[in-house]
Write a protein that binds this DNA or RNA. Structure first.
Lengths: 210, 210
DNA sequence: CACAGAACCGGACCGGGGTCCACTTAGTAT
DNA sequence: ATACTAAGTGGACCCCGGTCCGGTTCTGTG
């Protein structure tokens, strides 16, 4: 509770990156990621506690949470590399996933790629996209933007806001696990279901010509 | 560890309901539900712990969990009355929600009624439909069946399995809360989004005639 | 090199959901 | 009325994710 005399320093940061973390911090981050990756692979993500990861990384629990903030964020970090590849696929990649193909085909390809991603990393992904916070994750925001653009292009008649979120809900991890598990669907079935969904959605636009 | 001499009594139960719980158990169940309802209403479902409910009900925590099994199940029980009304609406009620209207209109009405339900009880519902277990809840099974029948009728061309689940995902509570909160959508916007979604879906069927 | 202070560290701690089990009690059979 | 038993009870206990804070270590500065 003291009076500040000096004016707040005017920084001209504009895109200055985070002030560079200390060497030991970087080392610990790597250790943690390694340990987590190993434990998750060995015993299944669901059966590994944060304490165990911390112990395996030779690090205190506080450090672990200081670095990653939450279990979900740690899981997300583990997938970031794969996630980035996926995003680049639909942003800059080759058609039909990337630009160049008609929107419907890009939509289908997007869903199928996302389904492949889930098939490969369902467990970790399930740990990452947990709780209502999943809607605020960076990947979700990217997906949302991508689908919004595609839908605007494909069926400008509708306000895409709800449509986008509903479609993304159809690509959620826990739904995926439910479909694969309790409902016994094969990956291919889900893919063709997705195709039917977006196909119908877009064919139905009162398009001038098909 | 003693030998049973008499043969096991042969009951002829076939649909006999659960062996009738003891009087004190019934009384405690009522107390718990009362306490939970009051606390949820007063302070918001998210801010009430199971210990608090047990204490307010004058009951041990063990009892609480023996009766309801989990926090989610307790929340579900709180909503059962309202839930049953909703279900009767679309099973036996008047059109367009109930039988008699064409499937598309029933689908639209179903979504809107479910959205109303969520708007009224979002908090408790969010406590009830949490985690992957939500797919196994009795209401979910009823919804699934209902949508499956409607879709089979409306667009027999497609396998409804995935479609049903995807549509239901678009009516999930946490998506709802996200839309209302972070995305700032009004209830009416969501409803019209739902209408557009199922509308497109069904119009698109290669129907012989509309 | 010495220093200051920010960034970092680790593990004790917290609250919450869920489980366990020794004890009590409501119904039942005699 | 009495004895028996299965259902019921309650609170101590466990594990887990997440927070806090006193002490430590790195790194820019003089």
């Amino acid at each position: 509770m003291e009076t500040r005399l000096e004016l707040p320093t005017v920084e001209l940061p504009l895109f200055e990156q985070a002030p560079a973390e200390r060497a030991d911090a970087t080392r610990n981050r790597a250790r943690i990621l390694d340990a987590a990756r190993r434990l998750f692979a060995d015993r299944g993500a669901a059966c590994v506690s944060m304490d165990e990861i911390a112990a395996a990384a030779g690090v205190g629990k506080g450090t672990l949470f200081r670095r990653f903030g939450s279990r979900a964020a740690l899981a997300l970090a583990l997938l970031s590399e794969r996630e980035i590849r996926f995003q680049e696929g639909f942003i800059r990649g080759a058609p039909p996933l990337g630009p160049g193909a008609p929107p419907l085909e890009r939509l289908i390809a997007f869903g199928e790629a996302r389904l492949d991603l889930m098939a490969d990393h369902a467990e970790v992904l399930a740990a990452a996209e947990i709780g209502p916070a999943r809607f605020d994750s960076p990947p979700y925001a990217v997906y949302r933007l991508h689908l919004t653009l595609l839908l605007r292009e494909a069926c400008p008649a509708h306000d895409p806001t709800y449509l986008v979120e509903a479609l993304l809900a159809g690509l959620g991890v826990d739904l995926f696990l439910h479909l694969r598990g309790a409902r016994g669907m094969a990956l291919a079935d889900i893919k063709s279901g997705w195709g039917a969904l977006v196909g119908s959605l877009i064919d139905a636009t009162p398009a001038p010509a098909r």
